[in-house]
Design a protein around this nucleic acid. Structure first.
Ligand SMILES: [Zn+2]
Ligand SMILES: [Zn+2]
Ligand SMILES: [Zn+2]
Ligand SMILES: [Zn+2]
Lengths: 151, 151
DNA sequence: CATTTTTCGAAACATTATAACAGTTGTGCG
DNA sequence: CGCACAACTGTTATAATGTTTCGAAAAATG
């Protein structure tokens, strides 16, 4: 995420938190910034390592901040990677799909209503009531596929 | 998985391993049996706890067996639960979807080609080459939804 | 039966996540 | 303002999950 996008994301978070009456503390802001600034998904302990803000920091510090950001929909958790990524459109709740490149490690967030709807239908056919769909695809991104062909 | 289904699963595994020229050792067989016998997904350490087969057993013992069973497609790993479940149709490779009931903990394995295809399309539209899709839906199963309504 | 490959045992270690409790800070109200 | 209360944070310890490594045992190979 580039600097401009980052600032926009932080501003959006500010506004949304105000609207929702929740506190966007310095700590939470800092964690969101670290997650968004990263080119790739970041693990909790990786964030922790970058949090040396004068005082120390322990795992719960990071996990609490992440829990908050997840609740507010500012970040997503990638279950297959045990890592976190900034959301690209936090203003509305959504079921998204993640394309994870095993080569470069970059992740693209899709928001295909077709996929979401299809899965919802398939689930509901069996009488199942979906709450939280987790859709993550491991593979190779366009860029890396292209590179591989050239070599 | 009931006793009959279990025996069928073990036999299928036997046959497939023979066909594939891989060894279905007593250890692997035992782990598969434990996974299949469970009503719900089981964690690696849970299996480990039930493996007191005279000799001791350490984590690698279980993880090695599980790796083998995963490769052969006899079990699946549920990433959101860090747990394993026996596959209901191990004879052919497949991309499946899992419906995980947050209430009773039971998991249903779907094999919807519609869902798989839809996701594949969405991914490929962006130039992404899917390798391993992970689709897990947390929610409430038909049975538990029904029970909840009665109360 | 010697050689080679695969599997298994065992100990230590690495990573991810949570529990529990005390202190601190912010917020609303009289 | 000064207090009460809730939310947030610091700290320590611990749980749960997963891996590395090395060497012994067992099985396939010839
Ligand atoms: Zn998102
Ligand atoms: Zn890539
Ligand atoms: Zn299956
Ligand atoms: Zn249920």
């Amino acid at each position: 995420m580039d600097e401009e996008t980052l600032q926009a994301a932080l501003n959006t978070a500010d506004v949304l938190c105000a609207q929702r009456g929740v506190r966007f503390t310095a700590q939470r802001r800092r964690v969101l910034e670290l997650v968004c600034r990263a080119e790739r998904p970041v693990g909790a302990y990786e964030i922790l390592g970058q949090l040396h803000t004068g005082a120390t920091a322990a795992p719960p510090t990071v996990y609490r901040a992440l829990d908050f950001l997840l609740e507010q929909g500012f970040v997503h958790k990638l279950e297959t990677l045990h890592a976190f990524i900034g959301c690209t459109h936090p203003e509305h709740p959504h079921a998204s799909q993640f394309l994870i490149c095993a080569d470069c490690g970059r992740v693209k967030e899709l928001e295909s209503e077709a996929v979401a709807g299809c899965l919802r239908s398939a689930a509901q056919e069996t009488g199942f009531h979906p709450k939280r769909p987790v859709i993550e695809v491991l593979g190779t991104c366009a860029q890396c596929t292209h590179k591989a062909k050239k070599v």
